[in-house]
Design a binder for these strands. Structure first.
Lengths: 231, 231
DNA sequence: TAGTGGTCTAGACCACTGC
DNA sequence: CAGTGGTCTAGACCACTAC
């Protein structure tokens, strides 16, 4: 019926069959508009959705590129859901916050050298009295040397990173896995050893430099990821 | 700089402060365009993003409504990731597929009466030789009475539902949780009892009628959910 | 039937990229 | 510099909802 879904479907087919070479831009928006006999805005709408669904990415001034086939299927939207209406109180406890020298493990995830200075923040988020989320974060100390001077009970480290202008953030990557909680995490979250929980790992980049690496352990009985859409 | 982010931010503030009553439409797109001194398309773009992020929903012909405050924060986009490049083979095994009468449990999730006929499909998806996903699905038998006549090794039940026109699908809701696998699931997935896995529960609606309910148990060592965005 | 959101057009100017 | 994507306008017609 309407035009852009047809254009989107055609482009998706071409992308999945590798009709457009990787590392090369797709035809430009005006070209695609001409090919399909629509206005630029209509062609653009199809590209918009393919971009959001991860099939292509765009670089202003350069072009629109295929994303490659690392990903199995389209994306979907989730939101972290919590029944805050019953327990609207939130509390943050700072377990540790210090400047330390990177161990080989930490150096690896931040692409630093072992011994480089790193800011470490270990916090526990609770909902009224129940602990819900454990946060362990490592930040390149050069990027946020004054981290410890802030009130870590109320401040968002990501907001601090975003507000400092010396090292502009360019990209966030995160993975959602599920793990059996080990002794340390289970005790903090006050659940039995081995309980299943979400583990979200997030890396923040400034171009190719890794600025921050954080792990969140999330109690699954208090949070779920929800989605609702129309087919 | 550009206009629609400012409009979006203003509307988001109003929504979070409940300036717009729930169950009542927001001002219409032409009204908002006049209020902010922009064209309708620009106001619409702000609403588009608020819709995608779950702050409002739209009903054609009726209006744009606040979504309510059940949700903690904005949404984010994830994609199910699997390293298919190493094991491109996929296999589906049908463990059970039959028509049965709803037990009270099944009747509850599909909003049927106990004893109503239900189609049940139990499948195992494998990646070359390793089992990866368990599927247990219940479909209202009135909606898809001929389900068993299809080749359940190759067919997508959701596609069948979507292609039959008698009961048009209107909504999908899904939740992502994490669980410790019980004996039955652990054996099928060939992992130790109690291993953490994703559990995705999905309900498909035709207006308010529940058409299909499915649980997927997903091995977390083979699938993760990934996201990549620019802040 | 009046008003809503859904789609589409044919322009326009801008910021940014690559050469 | 020419070409790209990002934004914006002022119209238009349509499908749908509510009354």
């Amino acid at each position: 019926m309407s035009k852009y879904p047809a254009i989107k479907a055609t482009l998706k087919e071409r992308l999945l069959s590798s009709a457009y070479p990787e590392n090369e831009p797709l035809p430009s928006e005006p070209q695609l508009a001409r090919e399909f006999g629509v206005s630029r805005m209509t062609a653009r709408r199809a590209l918009d959705e393919l971009d959001r669904e991860g099939y292509v990415y765009r670089v202003q001034g350069a072009g629109t590129y295929p994303s490659g086939k690392r990903f199995q299927q389209g994306t979907f939207q989730v939101r972290l859901f919590a029944d805050w209406s019953r327990h609207p109180d939130k509390r943050v406890e700072v377990l540790r916050a210090e400047r330390l020298l990177a161990t080989p493990d930490i150096a690896a995830v931040l692409h630093l050298q072992p011994g480089d200075p790193v800011m470490f923040v270990h916090r526990l988020r609770a909902d009224k009295t129940d602990p819900v989320v454990i946060e362990k974060r490592y930040v390149d100390a050069e990027v946020l040397p004054d981290l410890l001077e802030h009130d870590l009970v109320s401040v968002s480290v990501h907001d601090l990173l975003a507000s400092q202008t010396r090292v502009p953030l360019t990209r966030v990557e995160q993975h959602l896995e599920t793990v059996n909680l080990r002794q340390e995490e289970a005790q903090l979250l006050r659940v039995p050893l081995g309980t299943a929980a979400f583990l979200m790992r997030r890396t923040v980049y400034s171009s190719e430099r890794r600025v921050s690496y954080v792990n969140y352990w999330i109690r699954s009985d208090r949070f779920t990821f929800q989605e609702r859409f129309t087919p």
